[in-house]
Write a protein that binds this DNA or RNA. Sequence first.
DNA 1: AATCTTTATCGTAATATTGCAATATACCGA
DNA 2: TCGGTATATTGCAATATTACGATAAAGATT
Lengths: 109, 109
Amino acid sequence: MGATKAEHFTAKQNKIAAMIKALGHPARIAIIEYLMKVNVCICGDIVNELPLSQATVSQHLKELKSAGLIKGNIEGNAICYCIDEKAINTLSEYLQAISQRITTTKNCC
Amino acid sequence: MGATKAEHFTAKQNKIAAMIKALGHPARIAIIEYLMKVNVCICGDIVNELPLSQATVSQHLKELKSAGLIKGNIEGNAICYCIDEKAINTLSEYLQAISQRITTTKNCC
DNA sequence: AATCTTTATCGTAATATTGCAATATACCGA
DNA sequence: TCGGTATATTGCAATATTACGATAAAGATT
């Protein structure tokens, strides 16, 4: 035991959970917020922005990328990262749907 | 090593990351979706809805609760769970803010 | 009181994540 | 070509998560 029993859930549930999980770490939140703040694709200086080693940052970027939350374009020597608009929209809409549904018909608690 | 270096990030980043992390598991997504679907506070049958043992479900509920995503009221013998509207709204608004910001001024990629 | 039902907790095994130093890879400019 | 810069990968230790059986706790029912 110990591994998540993904086979018991729907593909959509697993997909959404994977995207959300990728966001669920302060370092990765900080990366996303930085990319949002600078508002352009950023080549290079993400490592300098974070209080973590280069290896660790690289790993976090890899996770964000494999979850589809960011994109990385090779730009000569450096790599240019930016937020994947579509992915963030998917998450945003998912949460909005829940939010709206519970707001319109709350019953107790 | 191994533990998240929470002290290097802002309180807000840690808080948001914790809430998002709590959602980042298919079982917990399934719990939230079920609570949303039935649209009322549910006493009792969450365990029967999930393909996991009672102990495991109880643990997932505990995590959702300690992250503030759900509320649980003791109702005699059983416990009545429902989604915490405020928490979901917080997450929803957080993602919407990112979404809007990157949509209005995308530059490359 | 004895038992049933519902939920929580403990203990434990399996697995995953986090973080970093060291190293590798790959493009760049001199 | 050689060194410099940027990023990725590997290997490892520390820690966290996931899952479940067993058991506990507490109200409900008989």
